[in-house]
């Protein structure tokens, strides 16, 4: 097996609550995989406060340079990085305009859906088109028998514009890391933690009168926002199904509260009724 595939397979199997620790362990075993793993394994997001604006922003591999992170609010790296690197990594022009507008949009979206939390969006230019990431983080502080929780969503986008900029192709890969737990006297400890990843692609129109660049930029923000909203809504349903439906069903498959002899008798009685009805 290819070592990189083995690393991803391992991280898909070992407890998701220890992904960061296991990732560090794999990198210590195989330093040659570090770069590839850091850009393809999603771990819980951390937030920092932008010293210039006082607003919180989220950190990931896409706004990182060494140990500095770029704030989407100030568009500056903290701590500052060398001018030469900054010229490469700090977006300007249309990419930065779209980034600012996307950040304003997801900020409203975040308040409507998350009623708190932190959001950040980062864009960067590709040789053709551009790419980006939209991030949300929310933690619920209640503890004990009421439970605690953390939600991190990471939406990575690749956008390529069709000739004439009438439409664009969007590829979205979304991961939600959902960490829930409670402790009470009834169940000493329950931990439900993990992550799910889904992908989608779509061709969407860019609405603009004539070829006004600002309309095209706005159209991208609308398309990205809507795709992220659709995907998060879908994934929320999926998470609900897996965390509360599937996990509970598997426990029920392992052990039946109702004695199995009763279950068997009921099934026989039921079959009996059905066969009589068929006569």
């Amino acid at each position: 097996m290819d070592p990189f595939d083995a690393a991803l397979d391992l991280l898909r199997r070992l407890p998701p609550s220890s992904t960061q620790q296991n990732l560090n362990g794999i990198i210590a075993l195989r330093p040659d995989l570090e770069e590839d793993l850091l850009s393809s394994v999603d771990v819980a997001l951390t937030s920092k406060r932008c010293t210039k604006t006082g607003r919180d922003y989220l950190c990931c591999d896409y706004n990182r340079d060494d140990s500095s992170y770029r704030s989407p609010w100030s568009n500056e790296f903290e701590p500052p990085i060398e001018a030469e690197a900054a010229a490469d990594l700090i977006p300007g022009g249309r990419i930065r305009r779209m980034e600012e507008s996307l950040n304003a949009g997801v900020d409203v979206y975040r308040e409507l859906y998350y009623e708190g939390g932190v959001s950040s969006a980062y864009l960067w230019a590709l040789e053709e088109g551009f790419a980006g990431v939209v991030l949300f983080k929310k933690t619920s502080s209640a503890g004990g028998s009421a439970g605690k929780g953390g939600w991190d969503s990471i939406h990575v986008l690749e956008v390529s514009e069709a000739a004439g900029k009438r439409s664009a192709h969007y590829k979205l890969t979304s991961t939600v890391i959902l960490d829930l737990g409670l402790s009470s006297s009834a169940v000493d400890n329950l931990e439900l933690a993990g992550n799910l990843t889904r992908q989608t692609e779509s061709d969407l129109a860019l609405t603009h009168s004539g070829s006004r660049e600002s309309d095209i930029e706005q159209s991208h923000v609308v398309n990205i926002g809507r795709m992220v909203e659709d995907m998060e809504t879908r994934m929320r349903n999926l998470l609900q199904e897996v965390y509360f439906g599937k996990a509970k069903d598997v426990v029920g498959d392992l052990r039946s509260i109702q004695p199995l002899s009763e279950v068997g008798r009921e099934r026989d009685a039921h079959r009996d009724v059905i066969s009589k009805m068929g006569r």
């Binding site: 070992l14 439900l192 933690a193 990843t197 965390y243 599937k246 426990v251």
Partner: peptide, 12 residues
């Protein structure tokens, strides 16, 4: 549960 993801429930 690990279809396109990794979800673990553990309880004691």
């Amino acid at each position: 549960y690990y279809e396109d993801g990794n979800v673990r429930m553990s309880t004691s």
